[in-house]
Design a protein around this nucleic acid. Structure first.
Length: 549
RNA sequence: GCACCCGUAGUUCAGCUGGAUAGAACGUCGGCUUGCGGAGCCGAAGGUCGUAGGUUCAAAUCCUGCCGGGUGUACCA
């Protein structure tokens, strides 16, 4: 394919003295393997009929060894069909090598301790994990990090309710059974949250407890804090594992970033930050977003200052070529401001850090929120998925449940809203994770029965039948798809492709006998290539490629 | 108010670096058992791509207005 593309480029140079980029697309299979519209693009420039130009190019292309056919169609497209040998080679081509010296950091905006996790966290983590897998294809070192709010007002709210619960004795926390800790923590947060809103006395107590989250110098406070902190991360780790997300390299805490963030801000007053009503603010309104306070009027570092400190920490530890922060779209404008401020504070790192925002996750019943404690938990989600799988007579293993959920989130373009219809998300047939897992298991089953599997080497010389060729053509597309997904950081391209690939295989499988057929050698080779391609794509998505199910 | 994002079959989504009849899945209706996993396959119905203009040989795709929806809008995180 690269040969064909450069051959066309050479022809354009020779015949028309032009160097317009040659784009080869994958047209409808009925047209050919590849298509190009260069003739249409050239027609205007040359003042000639596009079909004439296309004819000239096509006649020259046919003489290439790898080209089986080249025809002009429609207004002036050139449809190219490779010969079977060239197609076979193309399908074996491996993705380009990565740059070992490069490194990248990706931060997933993970859940805060002291608060409940909800399915929005699952979306964020899964998206970040898949993007990290894509980055792995290109960068030598990919550092996955997370960042958690261990200090501040939300801690104060939880601590207010927790301290009332323990009533002077931190040991009372042991009365909470392990499997109820998550709901317990979210209940405590909700109670504190309500009190903060409704009760002025509680409000000032909570403010004081929030301040204490930085010092934790009171023994009872510290004991309760440490226990809940540990519970939180046990819970977070286990949920991340259940979601199929790779563990993070390092967990950053807001308390790590707070002081250095404040220092950075103070060093840049008044050139970058200005004082306003006692607070230190950044005029985001000069940078396409809103003015935001980085340090409060009582001198405390705010979220934005901490993000600045965190950027510095990440930079010192990893020296990344690129640094990605995955957040919900609600934070888009906020990050625009933080990144604009960062570009001024650290001019040498301009454009290194990028914010990628996921869309909003909405239930068909409305948006979910953790502010009032009314959350849709990940636990609930897994229950629903397991139930749906059982209802269809399947075995609900953790790998299948995770596969279903990951695929449901990843098949949509990063950044667009996800309307979360539980029945849809939980689907295990059609365009779904389990469909792909099933397709993979089926291929493995066939391969296990094959007596003639020589790793796909035998199809080099043989002529391919129509169904075989269609499957091989689809397989050959993988490296292009991976390249696109990687450069755009859009995992959904992989989903779309894998589904089409599996469908193509299932069609092939319906019509072609594999084991025991006289073409077994060729077909088993194809199944092997298909299985490897599918497994590779699933690996990028973080979905387990099951051998049996 | 201002800024940003979004509007494609009944529903959920692809397609958006402009190109050939706008593709899937779910749902609906109708088919497929001797052959390797039916969580599968085949077929049918279903679309003025929100709307009105503009640019272009060519617009779902680019530009503008309007309508509809969402998000954000400093001392929460």
């Amino acid at each position: 394919m690269t040969e064909v593309r450069s051959a066309i480029a050479a022809l354009l140079h020779e015949l028309y003295d032009t160097d317009i980029p040659v784009v080869l697309t994958r047209p409808d299979a009925a047209f050919g393997d590849f298509a190009t519209n260069v003739a249409l693009q050239l027609a205007g420039k040359l003042g000639r009929n596009p079909r004439d130009i296309a004819e000239e190019l096509a006649t020259r292309l046919i003489s290439l060894d790898s080209v089986g056919a080249a025809e002009v169609a429609g207004p002036g497209f050139i449809n190219i069909r490779l010969n079977d040998t060239a197609l076979t080679e193309l399908a074996r081509s491996t993705p380009r090598a990565k740059d070992d010296s490069s490194s990248v950091v990706i931060e997933t905006n993970n859940p805060n301790p002291f608060k409940a996790m909800h399915i929005g966290h699952a979306l964020n983590s899964i998206t970040a994990d898949a993007i990290a897998n894509l980055l792995d294809e290109r960068y030598g070192h990919v550092f996955r990090v997370s960042y958690h709010g261990d200090v501040g007002l939300h801690v104060g709210k939880s601590m207010w309710a927790l301290l009332r619960f323990v009533d002077g004795d931190a040991a009372r926390l042991t009365s909470v059974p392990q499997d109820e800790r998550n709901t317990f923590m979210s209940r405590m947060y909700a109670e504190g949250s309500r009190a903060y809103k409704e009760d002025d006395i509680a409000k000032s107590e909570i403010a004081e407890l929030a301040r204490k989250s930085f010092t934790r110098d009171d023994p009872l406070y510290a004991a309760v804090y440490d226990t809940i902190f540990a519970w939180s991360f046990t819970e977070i780790d286990s949920v991340m594992q259940r979601l199929g997300c790779k563990p993070v390299e390092r967990r950053f805490l807001e308390s790590d970033a707070d002081l250095r963030g404040v220092k950075i801000v103070r060093e840049h007053v008044p050139d970058i930050f200005q004082e306003s009503d006692g607070a230190l603010i950044f005029k985001g309104s000069d940078h396409g977003t809103f003015d935001n306070a980085f340090v409060s009027s009582n001198g405390q570092g705010l979220y934005a200052a901490r993000d600045l400190g965190l950027m510095q920490l990440k930079s010192e530890q990893y020296h990344p070529n690129k640094s990605y922060i995955i957040t919900a779209e609600e934070q888009r404008d906020y990050f625009k401001g933080v990144l604009a401020a960062a570009a001024l504070c650290f001019p040498e790192q301009k454009d290194v850090t990028v914010n990628i925002s996921t869309g909003t996750l909405k239930l068909t019943t409305g948006k979910m929120s953790s502010r009032d404690g009314d959350v849709v938990t990940i636990e609930w989600l897994f229950d629903q998925i397991n139930e749906a799988i059982h209802a269809r007579g399947g075995k609900a293993t953790p790998d299948i449940a995770a596969g279903a959920l990951r695929y449901a989130f990843l098949r949509v373009r990063v950044g667009s809203d996800i309307i979360f219809d539980i029945n849809e998300a939980v689907s295990i047939q059609g365009n779904s994770g389990p469909y792909l897992q099933y397709a993979h298991a089926r291929a493995c089953s066939i391969l296990g029965k094959a007596t003639n599997d020589r790793g796909g080497q035998e199809s080099t010389t043989a002529t391919l039948e129509d169904g075989e060729r269609k499957l091989l053509l689809k397989i050959s597309e993988y490296s292009e798809i991976l390249e696109r997904a990687t450069s755009e950081l859009m995992p959904h391209h992989i989903c779309t492709y894998l589904y089409e690939l599996a469908q193509e295989f299932n069609r092939f499988y319906e019509h072609s006998r594999i084991i025991g057929d006289e073409r077994e050698a060729i077909r088993v080779g194809l199944v092997r290539q298909y299985q490897e391609t599918l497994a590779g794509g699933l690996r990028v998505l973080g979905i387990v490629a099951l051998e049996t199910m």
